[in-house]
Structures are given as C-alpha cells and as structure tokens.
C-alpha cells in the first residue's frame, strides 16, 4: 500500500524500541519491572508481526466470512449461537480454526509449535 512516510518503517521503529528495552532497560531494572518489560517487548513484537502479515490475513479472513455468508465475526458468532449454522458445522469449524491459527501467528506463533 502506498504511503508518504520516510524510513524507518513502522515495524523498524517498533523493533528499535523493542531492542532498546532489551539492551538497555532490562539489565538495569528489578525482577518485577523485568517481567513487565518482557510483556512490553512481546507486545511490540506482536504488533511488528501484525503489520507484516496482517494485511494478507485480512484478505483471507474476508474470504472465509464470505464463504459462510457473514459480514463479520459478530454475525458469524450470532448465527452459530442461533443454530443457523447447524447444517454446516464441519465447514464452519474448519474455517474458524483457520482464523484461530492466523490469530496465533500474530499473537504467539511459538504456541503453535507445542
């Protein structure tokens, strides 16, 4: 997607902050702040991944939803709840599972290796 910004890119900026936390902040703080620092670094890495692969995932998610005739997850959830998907639950489960895998690819890809 075209945009007017100079380098560094948004992911490169996030990476720079994350590496500063890791290199300079973490060794200088106590255990409790280190725990919160690690959480912060994980969040930055998560957003870096979302910026990288999120746009492709969005296209695929729209395709899944349109296969099921739903505008968004809200409509899909509501229609499963109302029993309107009962005659195609196998298909629904396969597509919902694919979206869960996509979410983990951004949120915590290591979780998929277990």
């Amino acid at each position: 997607m075209a945009h007017p910004h100079d380098v560094p890119t948004s992911t490169q900026l996030l990476e720079a902050v994350r590496q500063w936390l890791e290199r300079d902040v973490m060794p200088a703080v106590d255990a409790r702040l280190q725990f919160h620092g690690r959480v912060a670094m994980n969040l930055l890495a998560m957003v870096e991944r979302e910026i990288e692969i999120g746009p492709d995932q969005a296209v695929q998610h729209s395709q899944r939803l349109s296969t099921l005739g739903c505008a968004d997850d809200s409509e899909l959830a509501q229609r499963i709840k109302n029993g309107e998907m009962d005659d195609r639950l196998d298909e629904v489960r396969a597509l919902v599972y694919a979206s869960v895998i996509d979410k983990l690819q951004v949120a915590n890809p290591k979780y998929l290796e277990k």
């Binding site: 997850d73 499963i80 709840k81 919902v96 979206s99």
Partner: peptide, 8 residues
C-alpha cells in the same frame, strides 16, 4: 466480543 470458536 464476538468469538465464533466459543459459540461452537
């Protein structure tokens, strides 16, 4: 917050 997995 909609979660199709949880509905299933």
């Amino acid at each position: 917050q909609p979660h199709p997995t949880f509905e299933l």
